[in-house]
Design a protein around this nucleic acid. Structure first.
Ligand SMILES: NC(=O)c1ccc[n+]([C@@H]2O[C@H](COP(=O)([O-])OP(=O)(O)OC[C@H]3O[C@@H](n4cnc5c(N)ncnc54)[C@H](O)[C@@H]3O)[C@@H](O)[C@H]2O)c1
Ligand SMILES: NC(=O)c1ccc[n+]([C@@H]2O[C@H](COP(=O)([O-])OP(=O)(O)OC[C@H]3O[C@@H](n4cnc5c(N)ncnc54)[C@H](O)[C@@H]3O)[C@@H](O)[C@H]2O)c1
Lengths: 288, 288
DNA sequence: CCGACTTTGTGCAAACGTTCACAAGGGCGT
DNA sequence: ACGCCCTTGTGAACGTTTGCACAAAGTCGG
């Protein structure tokens, strides 16, 4: 895989971390433009975007030298340059598969199309939903995936179906020609090379927050007892859901074990095991 | 081996990147447990989680030595250990502020409470919404933030109000004692030290996808790589609106930033702008 | 026209994260 | 009981990202 791109507008390898921040800068820039501010320094823009100013300058330097020393950056011009780099100077038709709670919220979301993204199709498999109108969009059947994607030359798809159906929908989207997928279902999608998957996973975010919250609680607790690291191995603390630690009997590989998993079953989606033992390449999204 | 975790929120003993992956492993582990699989190797678990096996082993090694050489990891035991590390052995009451499209979708989301997160309050400012019931939760007024947070000892809050109201809601949550915030509004929240903010930003994800999609289009057009499915996708359309490369004079006003992007009003303004007066010092929160 | 002042763009080093490769360690068959 | 074989745990190499510090480059007042 060649890393260098020498075509056209000189898009050298821009770090992924930088790409992930460009939308942040863009948003801050639009906010400035709304306030009729014509130029901005790296310090100010960085503050508005919540990043370090040196980082911002380095990020922008990857796009080219678009600033003026001693002055700063021209807001409008920078908006244009960043937009161009991100590919926002063109419209991106998007298909949403799954017209449930989340899919409808997305379809209704104005911010969705504020940057050139346009929902052109909303699909579902439920006959009770097909034919209804959501945010001005007629919900159509999933069977039309291929036709819709082809007709509108769609490259970006959002998956908002239950986890059990997500891989199947993903495969169909990819088969139809979609190369970028925004996945809201809590599973790891397998996709062929050349397809990007980014996931939005609320549950993961909450768990990360819980980790830090726990740490803060523990820190606040003056009692230094049980400071993080391992209690002991054979500890027998049965927890409400997680089952018992290391029961004496460990079946040889692959044997059926007690199960006893999660009495508090995963509500909602419940991964009813789709392709878990994958042979295909697991879909690492770009960065996280 | 492992270092001591200082009892403070400054010195995490476990890398942030690892923390972000633990929920992924946990999900894969639950899926295995559901299938009554008692033990799993790092290779298998890594495949299920979509990561490199060496990375997985290193991640898990931060929690302690919970594997058995030559065999693998005991699924139930590892579920317990990871859960404990993430702080999921306790229940986390959560408050959602903003009972709009997204807030309601969240409240309805079963996966929300599948890992010990429990929505205990749903707040809004709209009188038309207050008093209604969403997913079994009575929507209450925002004025009750402080009371609700205090009453339930809430540490985690989700913000699903319009961007304009988000900072205010954030301040109130923090003032009431919330230390972890999941923000869905497209703004950078400023919070005092010790408060974690994680953002879920759909628009940013789409823009990142657009960047890669654009790159793929460009590549397909020039090089003869990738013979598969993109034959003539993505025509290059020159949209020149906002960008004027550095007009010679300090043209305070010239081109008004025109509709490069959708209908999002990009005010060009007419004031020979002063620079922005930083009124918001954005504080970045945890990772990414 | 000049000099002082401001801010960009970047070399560099440190911090952080990923991946390789392999020794240490433990189960399992014989 | 013993050695084979499998997998973990980890040292070390490598790549990426961050942040500092400063020279270069431009503006602005006089
Ligand atoms: N609601 C949330 O706040 C939330 C948060 C995080 C993640 N998620 C995830 O997003 C996904 C959707 O969540 P939701 O709350 O909207 O669920 P939902 O049940 O409200 O909606 C799912 C929709 O998908 C449709 N569907 C099912 N199988 C389909 C198929 N094979 N093809 C096409 N459509 C199909 C259903 O008819 C339904 O309309 C789930 O995977 C969920 O885990 C939801
Ligand atoms: N809907 C989506 O798919 C989506 C996607 C990404 C981001 N977002 C963001 O999430 C937020 C909510 O989106 P939404 O689609 O649910 O919007 P919405 O308009 O449907 O809901 C917003 C809710 O917040 C309430 N509200 C307004 N001001 C309030 C205040 N001061 N205190 C308490 N409640 C208040 C409103 O009454 C309304 O019920 C927005 O910031 C939006 O940008 C939404």
């Amino acid at each position: 895989m060649s890393r260098r791109t020498r075509s056209g507008s000189a898009a050298p390898g821009i770090p992924e971390a930088t790409i992930a921040r460009l939308p942040l800068y863009l948003r801050a820039l639009y906010a400035l433009a709304d306030r009729c501010i014509a130029s901005v320094s790296s310090e100010e823009l960085a503050a508005a975007a919540g990043v370090n100013s040196a980082k911002l300058r380095k990020d922008l330097s990857h796009l080219g030298s678009y600033g003026t020393r001693g002055v700063g950056y021209d807001v409008d011009y920078l908006i244009y340059q960043v937009s161009r780099e991100l590919g926002l100077t063109q419209d991106w038709p998007v298909v949403i598969v799954g017209a449930g709670n989340l899919g409808r919220a997305l379809a209704n979301y104005g911010g969705f199309l504020s940057r050139g993204f346009r929902v052109v199709a909303l699909l579902d498999s439920d006959c009770a939903v097909i034919g209804t109108t959501v945010a001005g969009h007629l919900v159509r059947g999933v069977t039309e995936i291929e036709r819709v994607v082809d007709e509108h030359k769609i490259m970006i798809g959002a998956i908002t179906v239950p986890a059990a159906a997500a891989q199947d929908i993903c495969d169909r989207l990819v088969g139809a020609g979609v190369t970028s997928i925004l996945n809201f279902a809590p599973i790891v999608l397998s996709v062929p090379d050349g397809v990007d998957v980014r996931k939005v996973d609320l549950s993961i975010e909450l768990q990360i927050l819980a980790f830090h919250a726990q740490r803060k609680s523990a820190a606040g607790r003056a009692g230094s007892e049980l400071t993080s690291l391992d209690a002991r191995r054979g500890e027998e603390r049965a927890i409400v859901a997680a089952g018992r630690p290391r029961s004496g009997r460990t079946g040889p590989r692959g044997t059926v074990a007690g199960g006893t998993v999660a009495g508090d079953t995963v509500a909602g989606g419940t991964v009813a095991g789709s392709t878990v033992a994958g042979d295909t390449v697991a879909a690492e999204a770009v960065g996280t």
